[in-house]
Amino acid sequence: MKECIKYLEKIGTKRLYEKGSIIFFEGENAQKFFLLLKGVVRVYKSISINKELNLHYFKAFDFIAEMPAFKKASYPANAVCEQDCELLELDFDTFEQSCLKDGKIALMMINSLFAKIMILEKELLRGSMELRKRFIFFILENESNLDQLSQRQIAIFLNARAESLSRIIKEFKVKQLISTQKGKIKLENKQALQNELW
């Protein structure tokens, strides 16, 4: 992986983005795609003036927007930096030539596309769940990052109203399933949370 990234750095352009910077907007022509080197990027769709539908959070060494670049289509969503980020901007035509020369680069892309399919499957499953279960899955899957996520950020990720999530958090605190400290959630009884799913 490291040697592939070093190679990609030779054919791409490193760009620094501050927190809150937009990387691309939905509908723009996808001539470039990105490899996230540092930070967190949120991809979302605007569904009304004040409402966003979060699709995914990308972390270091994830490809972003490779599918629309491959298809020479438009970006299907918006991308914003949730932290200061370092991205490697890649031209797809140059990347395609690299894939033809080096099978490791092609395998890296295939792996990324499989990961996107898994994300889609997970989101389809979550979309059919009530908020309570989506919240439990989220905190169990992201236990190691909970100390970095505010309750508002979790609500945004779950596409939920903060008030609705707050009621669930209050209930779980009363049941001693979770605790909160300075607005951050900590798991107190993982087994009981898992039992709440079934």
Score class of each variant (00 low, 15 high):
G12Q: 05
I110L: 13
L113H: 02
R15M: 08
I136L: 02
C99F: 06
Y57R: 11
L90T: 10
A65I: 05
I64T: 06
S164L: 04
F95Y: 14
S179E: 12
F58S: 14
Q176H: 14
L146Y: 05
A60C: 11
A73I: 00
M129C: 01
E26N: 08
E66P: 03
D93P: 00
K45D: 06
A77V: 10
A162C: 03
F138H: 09
R134C: 05
M1T: 15
N195A: 12
K186H: 11
Q151N: 13
W198Q: 02
F63P: 06
G20V: 00
S144P: 12
K104V: 01
C85Q: 04
K71G: 00
K104G: 00
Q153Y: 08
S164I: 02
I168P: 15
I139C: 01
S164D: 10
Y44M: 04
S144K: 15
K190W: 04
R42I: 11
L55Y: 08
M109A: 10
K2S: 15
V174G: 08
E82M: 15
P76E: 11
G12T: 04
G39M: 13
I156H: 12
I11K: 06
K2V: 14
L90E: 13
R134M: 03
Y75F: 10
S150P: 11
T180Y: 10
V80Q: 09
K133D: 14
Q176G: 07
I110H: 03
M1W: 12
Q97N: 01
G20Y: 03
E28G: 09
K14F: 03
K190E: 15
Q151V: 15
I154P: 10
N145W: 14
L8P: 07
F33D: 03
N50Q: 00
D62S: 11
E141W: 13
H56F: 06
F63L: 15
